[in-house]
Write a protein that binds this DNA or RNA. Structure first.
Lengths: 122, 122
DNA sequence: ACCACGTATTGACATTCATCGATATTGCGC
DNA sequence: GCGCAATATCGATGAATGTCAATACGTGGT
C-alpha cells in the first residue's frame, strides 16, 4: 500500500491537501443505524402503506392494502414484514384477517432520529 | 369486476372486508419521489460524507474524504456522484483537487419534504 | 515533453432487493 | 371433517446496488 513506492515523502497534514484531519463526527455505527431507518422508508410501496394505515386511524386488513396498491399480495406481505420487523407497524390477527396499524411511537422515534441528523448537518 | 356477478349486493366497498375504500392519499408518483430522496440518504457512507462536509463549513477535497471513510477512492467518488446528481452537494475544481460542499438549499428542501410526510402520517 | 498526483470512470463481481407464482398455513362456515 | 377465503412463506428470477482494481483524464511541476 505504501511500501513499494520509492518516495517515502513526508506526511504533513494528515488530510494531505486542504486542511484539518477529518474527525468522524458521525461514527459509522450511528450512520449505519440511521441509514437503515431511512432505507425502510425509502420505498414507495412502504410509504404508501404507512400513508394508508395512518389515514385510516384504525386497522386495515391486507386485502384492502392489496386493493389500493399496484403490487400483488405476496409483495404486500413482504413489505409489511419489513415494516413490522422495523417496528413501524403492528399486526393483530382477528378471524382470518390480519389487521395492521402504525406504531406512532416507533414512527416518531424515527422522525426524531432523522430530525436530529438534519439539525447536526444543516 | 362488478358486472358479471348476479349479486350486486350492498357491499360495494372495494376493500371488501374491513371498511372504506382505500383512497391513495399519497399518489404513487409522490411516494416514488420521496422514496428516492430517502434512498439517497439511506447509505452510511453518504451520511458520513454529508456530515463531514457540513462539519467543515467550507470545502473538502476527495482525498480528505477518502482518508476519513472506510472505503476506497473509487467508492468515494461513486457516492459523491450520487450526492451530486441528487443536488445535495456541489463540486468545484481548483487545481488538481476537487472541492466538495453541501448545498444547504437542496438539503433543507429534502428535510421539508420528509417533515411534511411525517406530518401527514403522524 | 514527461512524470507524478488527484480524481473520475470503467468493468467485473458479489450481494442485496423487489416481484410474483406456487404453495403452505390458519381460521371460518357448513 | 371438508372446502373456501385471507394471509404468510418459499423459490426463482431479474434488477439494482456497493465495492474495488485497473485505467483514463486532467493538472501542475520539472
Amino acid at each position: 500500500m505504501q511500501s513499494d513506492g520509492p518516495i517515502p515523502r513526508l506526511e504533513e497534514t494528515p488530510g494531505g491537501c486542504c486542511g484539518g484531519g477529518s474527525a468522524p463526527g458521525l461514527p459509522l455505527e450511528r450512520a449505519t443505524d440511521l441509514s437503515e431507518s431511512l432505507q425502510v422508508l425509502g420505498h414507495p410501496i412502504r410509504l404508501q402503506i404507512l400513508d394508508i394505515l395512518a389515514r385510516r386511524g384504525g386497522e386495515v386488513c391486507v386485502c384492502d392494502l392489496e386493493a389500493a396498491l399496484p403490487v400483488k399480495q405476496p409483495t404486500v406481505s413482504h413489505h409489511l414484514r419489513i415494516l413490522r420487523e422495523a417496528g413501524l407497524v403492528g399486526a393483530e390477527r382477528r378471524g382470518q384477517w390480519a389487521h395492521y396499524y402504525v406504531c406512532p411511537d416507533a414512527l416518531s422515534a424515527v422522525e426524531t432520529e432523522i430530525r436530529a441528523w438534519f439539525q447536526s448537518v444543516g
